[in-house]
Design a protein around this nucleic acid. Structure first.
Length: 601
RNA sequence: GCCGAUGUGGCUCAGGGGUAGAGCAAUUCACUCGUAAUGAAUAGGUCGUGAGUUCGAUUCUCACCAUCGGCUCCA
């Protein structure tokens, strides 16, 4: 029997794919009336979708695992065979597997239709698989979830069972332990424990309260971003949080993004005379800043000499996400984005796009997330043209342009069909949270539509008026989401420069409290964020608490320090540093802030 | 929006058809303390909200709200 080598991606996939089949076989044994959908290997394991009466309970999962154990012991060879389309279809109809029949019907005419058989269980499947069910060593069914057939919400919701498998028990345990460890960093847990944010039932979903600590971190990040953008030639705008529907009709939001907007006023209302309400009187909270910044562009006649024109705004956005979507600080209904739009000539497009990438990269490096991201080129879905503005030719052309820039920069990226914005393709910088779920952190988009739609023009050298290209971009993404990922990255112990509380002074006894406040004020006057723990507690307890609250510097003050004008410095990262003159402590902290030192834990 | 789980003092959790308990946190007092929890006392909850069943509901039923995991959507 072959030893499975998990360094070999093919073997790993085969192994987990086969685990999924063994699970399906167990389910069919226990509940023969259950219908099979699909069951692939995924990044950290596998799943199988079933059409099953009711739902699977925890106890059911245990039963399934027990049955899987039997199937492993039975050492079934896993055999592949092929059938012509009509026979394959006939067999699936006979086996009463409607989802498999549908899959076969949708296979291209020239497709080879293969099956895999292990014991009494046969499944339509392209493979690959391991050779024998007896090779399976360590597996665990992790959770049940609903999932739409073929990922379409109009279809029936199936029952999905997730699981994972490894070549041996130790690796499985190591994996499960790692997941448990990762979850301890969950920003949604840590962020609340550490007092960054809270939520309140009667405010509503996706609307967190940023508490002073969280608000301070956000403010620090915002100042940092705004200063850097100013250095890079951005002009600040401040635009309204809402506008009449007229604006969104020009941008297309009214037609393509209406479900995502909070409307003020009822578009279906009728007047006393029975007249439909004038839609101009319907306002909407802004889901994006673009149409507002275009109005800033339109405020003057533009010349090619004005371009590129770079607008930036720390922008509060409102999106009416459906109720099941909200997650901690990652998905919200109101959030703050480092928004920006660049208007440029076609010749400037490549250079400006690169500058946006450079800015994003600078930001990610500054906060320490640069090594954790991946790139995605998000294209339109040519089979779903109604979702988008513009012609197929325009889409293909602008996507070619974007791909050209990405390739010129030598970036490694995946291509994702159907992930574009309705007005243009996106370059997305993706990141995973502690649950392994991927989200967009930063996005840079090329828009070839809205310049025309809003009548944005510039007079070129030749005296002809032309439409500028627009780049939508964010420099650090959505601040709340970025904060969430930073909390997870640093397990709550944020780098000194962005920490809400940079140092805490710990007086040994109440004799030292007055002096502690004086020193606090001295440090504060240098721009450091410092608090005093003046509670009537022992020093050990104060240290323990500061440590648990992830304060980077603990400054102990007793008789000796008061007499000598020093502070006994304890760094969260480096431990005890001994007594230092207050001036030296200030210099050390300011230097660490200036250099934006990062300690990962 | 859909599938599933969950909802008990600020936090972590126990309990259970006869109107609730622990630890931490908070407050007060004593100790005046040297690098990860000093001791004692006090206060704090209409058990997410609303309806129903019942003599009686926090406990059972239903609806709604919120939180968590997934699907769909998305920064």
């Amino acid at each position: 029997m072959n030893m499975i080598d998990f360094n070999d991606e093919f073997q790993k996939l085969s192994y987990r794919h086969s685990t999924s089949h063994i699970m399906a076989q167990a389910v069919k044994r226990l509940w023969p009336e259950t219908k099979l959908a699909i069951g692939p290997a995924i990044e950290d394991g596998f799943y199988y979708d079933f059409d099953h009466e009711g739902t699977f309970t925890k106890e059911d999962l245990e039963k399934i695992e027990a049955e899987m154990k039997k199937i492993v012991k039975e050492h079934f060879p896993i055999e592949r065979f092929e059938l012509p389309r009509d026979e394959a279809r006939k067999q699936m109809v006979e086996m009463n597997e409607p989802y498999k029949v549908e899959l076969i019907d949708d296979l291209p005419a020239d497709a080879v239709i293969s099956f895999y058989r292990q014991g009494e269980f046969t499944d339509l499947c392209a493979g690959p698989h391991i050779e024998n069910t007896g090779e399976l060593r360590a597996y665990k069914l992790t959770q049940v979830a609903g999932a739409y057939w073929r990922g379409n919400e109009k279809n029936k919701m199936l029952q999905r069972i997730y699981g994972t498998s490894f070549p041996d028990k130790d690796q499985l345990k190591a994996y499960l332990d790692r997941i448990e460890e990762a979850k301890k960093r969950d920003h949604n847990k840590l962020g609340r424990e550490l007092g960054y944010f809270t939520t309140v039932d009667y405010i509503g979903q996706g609307l967190p309260i940023m508490l002073p600590r969280g608000a301070k971190v956000l403010q620090t990040l915002i100042r940092f971003v705004e200063d850097e953008e100013e250095r890079r030639g951005y002009l600040l705008t401040k635009t309204p949080f809402m506008a009449k529907s007229d604006l969104y009709k020009i941008s297309g939001h009214w037609y393509h993004y209406r479900d995502g907007m909070f409307l003020l006023g009822d578009p279906n209302a009728v007047s006393k005379e029975g007249q439909p309400v004038n839609e101009s009187e319907i306002y909407a909270l802004r889901p994006m800043t673009c149409p507002f910044q275009y109005q800033a562009y339109l405020a003057e006649n533009r010349s090619y000499r004005d371009l590129p024109l770079r607008y930036a705004e720390t922008s509060t956005l409102f999106r009416n996400e459906s109720s099941g979507e909200m997650h901690g600080l990652i998905r919200l209904r109101q959030f703050t984005i480092s928004e920006g739009h660049l208007m440029c000539t076609p010749e400037q497009l490549t250079e400006e796009f690169k500058r946006c990438l450079d800015l994003a990269s600078f930001m990610l490096d500054a906060v320490g997330l640069n090594d954790d991201v991946s790139y995605r080129f998000s294209k339109w879905d040519p089979n779903n043209k109604d979702k988008y503005v513009g012609s197929a030719e325009e889409w293909e052309a602008v996507q070619d342009t974007m791909r050209g820039i990405l390739d010129e920069l030598g970036l490694t990226y995946t291509e994702a069909e159907g992930e574009a914005a309705f007005y243009g393709p996106k370059f997305d910088i993706q990141i995973k949270n502690v649950w392994g779920k991927e989200d967009t952190l930063i996005t840079i988009q090329i828009d070839f539509q809205q310049g025309k739609q809003f009548g944005m023009e510039y007079t070129d050298r030749d005296g002809i008026k032309k439409n500028p290209y627009v780049i939508h971009r964010t420099s650090i993404g959505c601040y709340e989401r970025t904060l969430a990922l930073l909390i997870e990255k640093y397990a709550g112990a944020l780098p000194l420069w962005m920490a809400a509380e940079q140092a805490r002074i710990l007086p040994i006894s109440d004799k030292h409290v007055d002096q502690a406040f004086a020193v606090r004020d001295q440090l504060r006057s240098q721009g450091l964020r410092v608090e005093v723990d003046d509670r009537d507690e022992k020093i050990g307890k104060k240290i323990r608490q500061a440590q648990m609250e992830k304060v980077q510097y603990m400054l102990v003050m007793g008789d000796k320090e008061v007499d000598e004008g020093t502070l006994a410095v304890r760094s969260r990262h480096d431990g005890e540093l001994g007594a230092l003159p207050i001036e030296d402590v200030i210099a050390r902290l300011l230097d660490e802030v200036k250099r934006r030192v990062k300690h990962f834990s």
